[in-house]
Design a protein around this nucleic acid. Structure first.
Lengths: 192, 192
DNA sequence: AATAATATAGACAGACCTGTCTCTTCCTTT
DNA sequence: AAAGGAAGAGACAGGTCTGTCTATATTATT
């Protein structure tokens, strides 16, 4: 038997959708409460503050992204390089989805520019976590300068996320994955 | 004799600095008024609304950026390709400055996610203007797929701007310019 | 069936921000 | 020197948002 969704889970699901689609600042508590069909008091029993809900939203996105990397690893267990290449295609595919609205961490960081703000700090930390994982992939692939390559991919991917969000109609996923592979290849050639 | 700065110019200068450094939403009218040493009534005589001031700020940034491209053109009048390559180095140099806080257009777009909001629309338009100019440069350089290349550079540069803003300490400008040149080169090789 | 615990609905306080308005001061022009 | 116009200082209204609190309804337990 399916376990029924708890109030807390429902709130988080609604918040995740609204925060991601319309932005954290643009979506008020009242809206989340209304759309998740819960009373204000009940909301504040699950999450002490809005920021706490934002932290839960960011954590959800972090775990989701780590899941994507895990997926790429399982898809090509034989070759680390293939894992990295597959991840690029996979990211490209995700970015072309109609519901794609950019990187939740970058968006949150820009929405809360003050580095000491908990939302900013949490988003920054989550972004770093993810990037450590990609760097590890580049290291395992035995590429000569994994950190430099990882940094270049981070730039390219961060920008692709922004373009796919901001200039949705112009975004061509294959241009991203081709560019990513060009950068990866340039490091392989350099090794020889 | 030096013409004295008008109140309107002073307000815009202060706004430009604060909006860019701390974000548009984070900086209130009262703060700008206070720091530019002007009265509220005087402020509203120069700019009817805050959004009008934001539009002036974005316009200033647009003109400034077009000036950078113009600078690259004048630096290498003989070769369009050199202009493009020089621009990459020039952008990298700008992004490593301590005052660099990312792309004002991207930041503003993320701060005002609603596409119909005047600030969002103006920032989007300014960003397109700039990018048309870079695409033109790629076309003039005689590269085989100028639009595709321009799009890849846009991704890379947009991401570099975000990384240079968000992860300032990690940002290495030469990794950006090398990556940009790798992408440009990949199109030249493809042409042969 | 009665009582205890929990959820709902929504009023309300407090903070913050934009834009208007008033009052006073200062500067310029005649 | 006097008068008129512009600028400064800041109160105030109206809006929005978060988080608290009260009163009513519903569910669960014994």
């Amino acid at each position: 038997m399916e376990k029924k969704e708890t109030a807390k889970e429902r709130i988080l699901r609604v918040a995740d959708e609204l925060f991601y689609r319309e932005g954290v600042r643009a979506v008020g508590i009242d809206r989340i409460i209304h759309e998740s069909g819960v009373a204000k008091a009940s909301f504040y029993r699950s999450f002490a503050t809005k920021d706490e809900l934002v932290a839960a939203y960011l954590e959800l996105r972090r775990l989701q992204f780590l899941g994507n990397i895990e997926h790429a690893r399982k898809e090509h267990p034989e070759s680390k390089l293939e894992q990295l290449l597959f991840l690029m295609d996979y990211l490209a595919e995700r970015m072309k989805r109609p519901t794609y609205r950019g990187c939740s961490f970058m968006n949150t960081i820009v929405e809360f520019p003050e580095p000491t703000h908990p939302n900013h700090a949490k988003a920054l930390e989550s972004r770093s976590d993810i990037w450590d994982e990609v760097t590890l992939l580049a290291e395992e692939a035995g590429l000569p300068n994994p950190r430099d390559l990882s940094e270049q991919i981070r730039m390219l991917w961060s920008g692709a996320a922004m373009v796919a969000y901001i200039n949705k109609d112009d975004f061509k996923p294959e241009l991203f994955s081709v560019a990513a592979k060009t950068l990866i290849n340039s490091h392989r050639v350099a090794a020889v």
